[in-house]
Design a protein around this nucleic acid. Structure first.
Lengths: 337, 337
DNA sequence: TTGTATGCGTTATCAC
DNA sequence: GTGATAACGCATACAA
């Protein structure tokens, strides 16, 4: 079923059908109706592939996610959801590309084959091959996250450095002197994952500014790791009274370890972090945290991308988001010892 | 950068370049090398859109998910992840379509515009317009879930009816006489959502078979709803000793309500259900549940779809999965009252 | 108001 | 072993 068939059955030329559909040229009411009748009868829909080839754009954006096998964090899911939603609102489809490993067929298909008009890149590292590849490809792209040279691209990002610093200052204000940072996994750290490094930098700086005793530790992205990580932390540093963290997924486990150590939050121990609002609220007790507006970030990324697509020559833009910390009751005065 | 440019620079015709790339016709080692050199130098990649138009297939599958705005459950995420992974293994890309509301542009674009070679449909209702639409479109599709007439399509599904029935029998074996079913939301029930209806059917049947007192209730898909739902349940039915549930997302809240009522699991109260393994294991305490193998189901759906695509005339197939219940310690003998 | 002709980038048929 | 050429289905510049 193609436009030629419709034309034949309506007794007009293909271009007339095309124009009747697009409205880019006046078509007499009479023929328009005749054409529409045939279209309705046969259930004709223009072939999107042919249209894309002709117009030179696919009306599709690529969303590069971490390999699905390694379960996505709540926040990453929030990004995916909001990107998909925002794209749908703009009548754009989303092509998913699970990437992140280096030798990557899916990524190369999407980017090299020009299957999309632009790309949104998640989980960016400080040095990221995919950014290099996208830059050379000339395809518009926006990062959720940024490399160590943010000027080279458009991006939206969470200001982990500032946020963790603020958490530490908040805890210091409450009298805590010995604070631990529970970061993301050692692997991500080693891979140069931006948020992990920036959180650490913010932590180090705040600890130095306030003359605190800071302990840094990495923790895998799951509840079980959270348990063992915090258990070890409490064993090794018995005088620890607070934790700052960006590791959403490990949080339930961290709670559990604190509880098992016989400590009550926030009376004996405080905890503050960075997490999606929904996640922070649903912890038990709800976590004092900087609420990352995942939906806004995704929408903003789509927005920036659409802008880049419509004007590829436009200068890069970056948007650093640092939401306020919502007090929810997991932080309190440092216990007297 | 297109194939003509490569041909010109290599001093051969476009067809030779095409054949050098596809290997579908012998090309002399010499010219092959010359062509490859030019390709490498210019970083040429065949345009996927043009290829799709010519070949009549897009090497893309559509994945129809519930609107992202309503957060997906852990299990749904598992399906998405496994579908994306399985598709990537088969060198297929995945186009996401957030659908489910009725007036649906994204769905229509993907299906009507033939942007994909086939579709995987999630969250199917007993009567589902999208199934009707897909059937009439002639596009191969596979459901994760099935309508009330399973013969009309290919699908993979979880046997909620049997699984919930088994949960009830297990609880009855332990001496429980008054058991509640915590189902999915009233809205899903009203919308004719298969799992909710089938779980209820399985519950009713098992309750009847064992001569138990059964209470059925719906519960929205979040922890908070789980709390209020179970709190009400315990208030209205003080002699309740067990719950069977398929509502993953509400489970943490259900635990909380039971705890707040001063009951200890499994000593005072038992709970069993259907959930993803990862989810069940990470509850605290880990839930006795039928472990839904989301990854297997997704992979199987992709498999079925690929089969449908390569042989559209092949008969429909259905696969009903009913994983065994893993005892994890949230069920115990009914308390003496 | 409508029709004809061309090209988007590719693959594949036919000819040499 | 290689080249010219015709589609794939659409949009649009050019004619009438």
């Amino acid at each position: 079923m193609n436009i030629g068939e419709i034309a034949k059955r309506s007794g007009v030329s293909r271009s007339t059908v095309s124009y009747a559909l697009s409205g880019k040229r006046p078509v007499s009411e009479n023929t328009r109706r005749r054409i529409q009748a045939v279209i309705d009868e046969l259930g004709y829909r223009p072939n999107a592939t042919a249209k894309a080839l002709k117009e030179g754009r696919t009306r599709t954006i690529g969303l590069v996610i971490p390999p699905a096998s390694q379960r996505l964090t709540e926040m990453q899911l929030g990004f995916v959801a909001s990107v998909v939603d925002a794209a749908a609102r703009a009548d754009l489809d989303v092509l998913l590309s699970p990437s992140g490993g280096e030798h990557d067929r899916s990524f190369e298909r999407v980017v090299g084959g020009r299957r999309v008009d632009g790309v949104i890149l998640m989980e960016i590292r400080l040095e990221d091959d995919r950014v290099t590849r996208l830059r050379q490809s000339g395809l518009p792209f926006v990062g959720i996250g940024r490399t160590s040279r943010p000027d080279e691209m458009s991006w939206v990002d969470i200001d982990y450095e500032t946020l963790i610093s603020q958490c530490v200052h908040h805890l210091a204000d409450l009298g805590h002197r010995r604070i631990a940072l529970v970061n993301r996994s050692t692997e991500l750290m080693a891979a140069g994952y931006g948020p992990a490094h920036r959180a650490q930098a913010g932590f180090d700086q705040a600890v130095a500014e306030r003359g605190l005793e800071g302990v840094r530790t990495c923790c895998a992205d799951d509840a079980r790791a959270g348990v063992s990580c915090v258990a070890r932390l409490l064993a090794d540093h018995p005088d620890l009274t607070a934790i700052a963290t960006i590791n959403e997924t490990a949080m339930p486990g961290m709670y559990r370890a604190i509880e098992r150590a016989g400590l009550t939050v926030p009376r004996d121990f405080s905890i503050a972090g960075v997490a999606g609002r929904h996640w922070a609220e649903n912890l038990h007790p709800p976590l004092t945290a900087a609420d990352v507006p995942a939906d806004e970030l995704g929408a903003q990324a789509v927005d920036l991308l659409i802008r880049q697509i419509s004007d590829p020559a436009a200068p890069h833009r970056g948007a650093l988001v640092s939401p306020p910390i919502s007090l929810r009751g997991t932080t309190g005065p440092a216990p007297a010892r």
